[in-house]
Write a protein that binds this DNA or RNA. Structure first.
Lengths: 212, 212
DNA sequence: CCTACCGATCGGTAGG
DNA sequence: CCTACCGATCGGTAGG
């Protein structure tokens, strides 16, 4: 083996050249998918935005769908939301639910414009198949969360824990989705209501015993 | 004016030839948009499915977006949901909310596979602009519904009526959306929970005074 | 990672 | 002069 010059792998501070190109492609594709959707975005557009030729993309991704999966993986917030929710102080149900609501909503609305259009593309083009795979991987973590929740069962009404969890998630999902449709409408902007706080309040009254 | 023969307009039982062709185009485009999305569906596919040539489409719609708008208008269920909800018996809050939940959920899940993918396309391709226009038109009807609701305020906690309404809609939206992601997962199918009933129950406890 | 290109198909329009 | 379409083709772009 002759001493061919090294290709300079991760000698660089952070990323190798290949990794940097891959990251540029993901970032470029993310912006284009958000604005134009999946079929509305061409490989040439992605290449141009990332500063390389069409053919070069295929050194990093086998096809367009693989780019989308990488984008979704890079931008979905579950790897930040779940640890954050697990680390929340859990003294009482009220404190926990309020904190969780704030935490999830903050991360989700923060990610709303960053993520929701991407999720719509996912549903349209792939019938949610990538997200479904994520959900399956998340099940154990959710179960351990429910386990922890079950220790605070005292003040709770007799309701199945999965129902409580899903109702909470449904409320937040519905809040974020309806936000997209309502936020530009003057009539709604004029209503001075703290929607998140109000919904969490309704939810808490819904799951707690009256005497609590 | 000589007695030229009449052009035989809507003598036919239901639709004129033009209207029938338009209806066929909408139906064909609907099926294709649902399966393939907007950019994933070609004018040629729509034409073929409707049994005419590509050029013929443009006698009915000026471009592809106009077809989509017509499809959305033909298939969204607000003109059936709203009258149904307005006609519900409204003796008590509990009865009303339970009936409304069942009614909306039935229509929405019935329309789920008929409509949700279309709404995702709408969000991806048009940033919800057609649905926003619908929402604005619906505001007066919703306000009159809230007006009616305000007469049953007795057993309700002191909460803003718009909050109650939106929380209810958010819960149902979240239920339907999460359904799409969860329904195929074995773990969830194994849970014997009546999700709709449970969520409506939580919601009702959330908005009603404890003593009621 | 590029240049050069493929089979096919894109949304939209021509004249008749 | 109209509605409803045809066969053919426009300039460009798709994923690979």
């Amino acid at each position: 083996m002759p001493a061919k010059n090294k290709p300079v792998p991760p000698l660089d501070p952070a990323l190798s050249k290949g990794e940097a190109t891959r990251a540029r492609l993901i970032e470029a594709a993310y912006g284009l998918f958000m604005q134009q959707g999946f079929h509305g975005t061409s490989m040439r557009q992605i290449a141009e935005a990332a500063g390389l030729a069409v053919g070069g993309i295929y050194n990093h991704f086998k096809d367009k769908e693989e780019i989308f999966a990488a984008v979704l993986d890079a931008y979905h917030p579950y790897h930040t939301i779940l640890p954050a929710v697990q680390a929340l102080p859990g003294d009482s149900v009220e404190a926990y639910v309020q904190a969780a609501g704030r935490e999830i909503y903050a991360q989700v609305t923060d990610a709303e414009r960053q993520l929701l259009p991407l999720l719509f593309v996912e549903m349209v083009e792939f019938q949610g198949r990538h997200v479904k795979a994520m959900v399956v991987k998340l099940i154990p973590a959710v179960l351990s969360l429910l386990e922890r929740f079950s220790k605070m069962r005292g003040p709770l009404r007799r309701l199945p824990l999965p129902l409580i969890f899903r109702a909470f998630m449904a409320l937040l999902i519905g809040l974020v989705v309806s936000d997209m449709l309502l936020k530009d409408i003057p009539f709604f902007k004029q209503l001075k209501i703290n929607w998140l706080e109000g919904m969490v309040d309704i939810f808490l009254h819904g799951i707690l015993k009256p005497e609590a």
